[in-house]
Write a protein that binds this DNA or RNA. Structure first.
Lengths: 151, 151
DNA sequence: TTGAAATACTTTCCTATCCTAATTAGTTTG
DNA sequence: CAAACTAATTAGGATAGGAAAGTATTTCAA
């Protein structure tokens, strides 16, 4: 439809198209939930849930955020009762962060809310179309996997 | 792989998976270009390119940003010579913003750079796999199309 | 035709987020 | 035990974006 800048390879053209749709869809999903947690806070909570109890340092490198920033994020989450901290008895410098039941519940609710939009749209597709999307999701997961060479 | 919270329908499960991969890929694409323009500035420049000359007010509502913020964004883009402003001779309160040739060139380059990452990854797939992604991109474009009923 | 209201943008000031540098507390090692 | 190292925190600063108020211009009603 739109005459994109002259592309050299078919991959480049597909890349352009994929980038556009992924960027837009992500934006749509983001604005779908104006929740009371900042994006970093939500992402941190999700990491804690997915990766189990983590130290502040691990969290800050997972979230690509500096340690001081992570200190504040975790402090805020803790104040709201969504995570708990436990000092490691063997090395009392480190504190492990863990999701509380309230944190897990919050995450589940927030996911359900975001997924609701997508699920509603997906319901309008037929089985074959949903299978296509599933297959693509698989491939994109592979693309995102950094064990594949090249940063 | 990860035991997600109990989902009710197959659509919900796919939605969850799709949301995750789309969000992550979008983030990857975003951080891929640490360019000298902020995200809002880049988005504004892209809107100006795509929608033609726009007033500040139109721009701020398109970008979901308050007028003062748009004033600053445009001022910054103008300083860098990426857009130009022209006062409407019929109504001297309004100023129309337009992309300069330098602005268009910048956009093209930035797109090419982002696409490069994706294109590189896509090159590692075979034709069948690329076709799957293309099909999915089509479906996602349809999903994003707001002319389809339901917000 | 002129004052009041409306409109388009700008200026000022405030908040939130995330950074770097320096500090504190705890652990390991020579 | 002291020096070096490590984990987390505190202090301070940069930047993006918003709300409220201000300025310039246009429109409308009496």
């Amino acid at each position: 439809m739109l005459p994109v800048s002259p592309t050299t390879s078919p991959e480049a053209e597909l890349a352009s198209r994929l980038r556009l749709v992924v960027t837009r869809l992500a934006r749509r999903l983001r604005t779908q939930l104006p929740g009371e947690l900042s994006p970093s806070q939500l992402a941190t909570l999700a990491s804690v849930e997915g990766l189990g109890p983590l130290t502040l340092g691990e969290l800050s490198s997972v979230e690509r955020v500096t340690p001081p920033t992570m200190t504040k994020i975790v402090a805020c989450l803790e104040e709201q009762g969504l995570v708990s901290r436990t000092v490691d008895p063997n090395d009392r410098r480190v504190a492990r962060v863990e999701a509380t039941p309230a944190g897990l519940a919050f995450l589940a609710a927030s996911r359900q809310q975001k997924d609701a939009y997508l699920a509603q749209r997906l319901r309008a597709l037929d089985d074959e179309e949903r299978a296509s999307i599933e297959r693509a999701a698989e491939l994109l997961e592979w693309i995102l996997d950094d064990r594949v060479r090249g940063s």
